[in-house]
């Protein structure tokens, strides 16, 4: 086969590429992360969620540019080189180095997004210190932070999130081990405070995911995953497990209620008192032998 380079293919390519780049940039500008848009996730309310969104916009812009470029050239080739009467195909094939020109930008994209991904992953995982509005009392608490890197001057609030079919149990810091304050379904945390979650499971694999407060982590029995967030304003943030866990998996939701530090302290104290009262009640009933079915 005679190898002939097709002289016009590249110059034509450049004319297609220029409007393409403009269109891509315009699209990226239109779909800016500041405004609510169909093209991206809803706004984040935690530093790591913001990092994820930044990464998303860059990655999706790169991907969209590649996809649009392919389609522009593909459609151009289909329109320009349809079979027509009196037209003969030019039977050229690749000459030496024909793949250099397309390979260079592809390698650039692959390496660039790879480095970018590493940087953003590190950024999203680094636990930021508690802000000025946050819970100062958390300084005294010790966090088991495992794989996450934590600045030494800030002690984040360490909370256990334990998945089970089909709800979440949250254990708050303070108190003796085995006698910790807990809640089901709804996690209450102080605003502007670094929260480190230790996520695990007692039965099958679940997944912790509050879209506004950072990425997903698996709850695997026998293993502990770590994630963190620092909610920037008060409110209720819903989420849902995204790992199939059985018949009622669709209903396995979770809520994070972000409150002021004072309200958080009150909540924990209230829970502690309620739990103590419930314990006393049960103890009394046991000693009175008043619990049906329970024989001493």
């Amino acid at each position: 086969m005679v190898s002939v380079r097709h002289p016009r293919a590249c110059s034509r390519g450049a004319t297609y590429l220029a409007p393409l780049v403009v269109a891509g940039l315009a699209l990226a500008a239109l779909a800016s992360p500041a405004q609510a848009t169909v093209f991206g996730p809803r706004a984040g309310h935690s530093p790591n969620a913001d990092d994820i969104r930044t990464a998303y916009w860059v990655a999706i812009a790169v991907a969209a540019l590649l996809v649009i470029a392919v389609h522009v050239f593909l459609i151009a080739a289909i329109i320009r080189f349809r079979a027509r009467r009196g037209r003969a195909p030019r039977r050229f094939t690749a000459g030496p180095g024909a793949f250099m020109r397309p390979a260079a930008p592809l390698v650039l994209v692959a390496v660039g997004t790879f480095v970018f991904g590493i940087v953003m992953a590190g950024k999203a995982r680094d636990v930021q210190p508690t802000g000025s509005q946050g819970l100062g009392a958390s300084r005294g608490l010790v966090a088991q932070v495992g794989a996450l890197s934590v600045p030494s001057d800030a002690k984040p609030l360490a909370i256990n999130a334990i998945g089970q079919q089909f709800l979440w149990r949250f254990e708050y810091p303070g108190g003796r081990p085995g006698d910790r304050v807990f809640s089901y379904g709804e996690l209450v945390v102080p605003v502007d405070t670094a929260i480190v979650l230790h996520v695990t499971s007692t039965d099958v694999i679940h997944r912790w995911f509050i879209p506004a407060l950072g990425g997903q982590v698996d709850a695997v029995p026998g293993k502990t995953s770590e994630t963190w967030f620092r909610a920037d304003r008060e409110g209720v943030y819903p989420g849902q497990s995204t790992s199939f866990s059985g018949s009622s998996y669709s209903a396995m939701r979770a809520w994070v209620r972000v409150v002021s530090p004072d309200a958080y302290r009150q909540y924990v104290q209230q829970k502690r008192d309620d739990l103590a009262a419930a314990q006393r009640y049960v103890q009394r009933k046991v000693t009175q032998n008043a619990i049906p079915g329970l024989r001493p």
Binding site: P41, N48, D51, I52, R53, A55, Y56, V58, A59, I60, V62, A63, A64, L66, V67, V70, H71, L74, I78, T113, F116, G117, I118, M120, A121, A124, R207, P211, G214, G215, Q216, V217, T242, S243
Partner: peptide, 29 residues
């Protein structure tokens, strides 16, 4: 040609969600 187009679109999405923090957000959605 339809297969090329459809696969390109899908692979573009895969490329975006294989970037690490993006994957944390989009995996299993």
């Amino acid at each position: 040609l339809g297969a090329i187009s459809s696969m390109t679109i899908g692979l573009g999405g895969e490329l975006a969600s294989s970037v690490l923090p993006v994957g944390w957000q989009l995996d299993n959605t």
